[in-house]
Amino acid sequence: MVETAVIGRLTWLAASVAGAVQETSRVRTLELDVPGWAGHRAGQHLDVRLTAEDGYQAQRSYSIGSAPGDGVALTIERLDDGEVSPYLVDEAREGDQVEVRGPIGGYFVWDGDEPEPVLLVAGGSGVVPLMAMARHRARIGSETPMRLVYSSRTWGDVIYRDELEPLGLDVVHTLTREQPSGWTGYSRRIDTELLSEVAWPASDSPRVYVCGSTRFVDAAADGLLELGYEADWIRTERFGATGS
């Protein structure tokens, strides 16, 4: 899809911070200005590289949360023992320079050209690449049914909380650690029983994207297989505190 820009994708590109949005106390979105950017597909990520004054370099992978054609916005969660995320979440200012490599990924992507209903399953900041898919669906005016099952620790940890409903997809929240008073939604980790209540029936042959920690992804994927989903329908992306 973007083969014509292969050279640009192989090299590190200079990028500058063009804007920032605080999403939660631990999560911030950085809008990047990337001259020469080849464009991206919904679900892709990129690598960010920081270089210290002494030449030390650190790099990590971050998912792109913006829709294709709508610029490059990374939504980043601060890992307190991280090398890169504390700077990006707490320190980066408009005009700061970083280097990026990407876009990356031809597997965990949704282009919006398939008719099957889509099930998005997010654990914490795993919602970011799925948000790109939800925004892409709204942007292209797709009527493909899309449902997001989104596990967060508390209501305050829900990233994009006020943006989800206006995108016109079904959203099912579960809050695993603490719930607001009067909460009527789910309040436990995602398991087979929860999925059986909210997932599209297997007879619809849904397309599934699961993103979160390894434990989260394994639990969700195993649950869906138990419900009769085929392994080929389920695309997963595990995240950890690393990038290579």
Binding site: H45, R101, I104, T214, E237, G243, S244
Partner: peptide, 11 residues
């Protein structure tokens, strides 16, 4: 917990 997937080494 250390297990990632091929997406992580995509770059």
């Amino acid at each position: 917990d250390l297990k990632l997937d091929g997406n992580a080494i995509g770059g």
